[in-house]
Computed example of a mutant assay.
Amino acid sequence: MNKIILAAAASSVLLLAGCAATDTETASKVDALTNKVDELSQKVDSLSSEVQKNQATSKSAQEEATRANERINNIAQSYTK
């Protein structure tokens, strides 16, 4: 009975040791993917900033167009026959 428990313990230790060992190829792939994720995160932040700037610019242009249309409408109303 003790031999079976000892054999099971030894095999579980070897199995866990095998799972804990990292392969250098796998580690390098993980590092490459981490770098790509970081790069893409920076690009997303940059694009998000550009979108916010463009939204502000388009809102300003829309407000200016509305004011211009109101001025044109007021001028047109003053020239009624």
Rank of each mutant, 00 (worst) to 15 (best):
V30T: 06
V37D: 10
Y79G: 11
I72S: 14
N35L: 06
S46F: 01
Q42E: 08
A68E: 15
S78N: 02
E25H: 06
D31M: 01
A17K: 02
T22H: 03
E39K: 04
A65D: 13
Q77E: 12
K43R: 06
S48Y: 11
A20L: 05
R71T: 13
K43F: 01
E63N: 03
K53Q: 01
E63Y: 00
S46R: 12
A76Q: 15
G18H: 08
E63H: 04
A27S: 07
L6N: 09
I72Y: 01
S48M: 09
I75F: 05
N69W: 05
Q52A: 15
A17G: 02
A10R: 09
R67Y: 10
S49T: 15
Q42N: 07
E25T: 09
Q62W: 11
L40H: 04
D23F: 00
T57W: 13
A9P: 06
A76D: 10
K29Y: 05
D23G: 00
I5P: 02
K53C: 08
A65P: 02
A21R: 06
A68C: 10
S58E: 14
E39Q: 09
R71P: 02
Q77T: 12
D38V: 01
N54L: 15
S78I: 04
T66P: 10
K59L: 15
R67D: 14
S60D: 15
D23I: 00
K3P: 05
I75Y: 06
K53M: 08
L33R: 05
Q42Y: 02
T24Y: 04
S58V: 15
R67C: 11
T24D: 06
E39S: 01
